[in-house]
Amino acid sequence: MPEPLLSVHGLVTGYGPNAVVEQVDLSLCPGESVALLGVNGAGKTTLVSTIAGLNPLWSGSMTFRGDTVTKAGPEARATMGISLCPEGRQIFTSLTVEENLLIGATPSRRRRPAATAAQVQERLARSYERFPILKERRHGGGGQLSGGEQQMLAIARALMSAPELLMVDEPSMGLAPAVASTVYGLLRELKREGLAMIVVEESSNRALGLVDQCIVLRGGRSVLSAPVGELPDHATLLEVYLGSSTSEEVTS
């Protein structure tokens, strides 16, 4: 058992007085990927934002590559190699495509040497290689891209920091199936390259085809956590997912 890259214990967080995510545990080894599933409002976005440092942990702890990062802000976590491709893409529309990519390249690294100008250029070239369309549009405004192109830009931007953990929140939201397939093709490629990933989806066989582990959130609690190979049959999964029967935890 290799040392986990990310491990989260008993994470609780929320907004104002309301806890939205409660007692979630999660552990991820280098190169491993996990799908985070759940219906609207289950708390998926809140969970990944919290892992990225945008929301404070109310209780619980989190370590990344052995370092405790429970109290670190998102800036520190970004420099450590956690990258979130946020829900709704959040492209900077007042920046050009290339500027969006450049801002993604975090200049300093904790415990890793800072990215040099040459490295940044290299990553930029790599992004353009992956997404030729971005190269074509690189001097255009970030807001002028189509939805699919924006999703690619968002992922490319998240990759510019050469992360060790990539979290993608609903990569196929609002995309035509063909475009979503392209995006997943890319994620599969990244996985092959050894990048650890957390992929948030509402429900997607695509996501399950990509990942090693699956976690289902319902009402902010993890109701199922299992390796993909050991997932229960479709009917049970549906039940867990929607909570149509009892709500006791199903763990394999």
Binding site: Y15, G16, P17, N18, L54, N55, P56, G73
Partner: peptide, 17 residues
């Protein structure tokens, strides 16, 4: 404002949201 849950402190003011 914070009490009402719709106002998070601004990022520029503390290290927050």
């Amino acid at each position: 404002g914070a009490e009402r849950g719709d106002a998070e402190p601004c990022p520029a003011c503390s290290a927050d949201w």
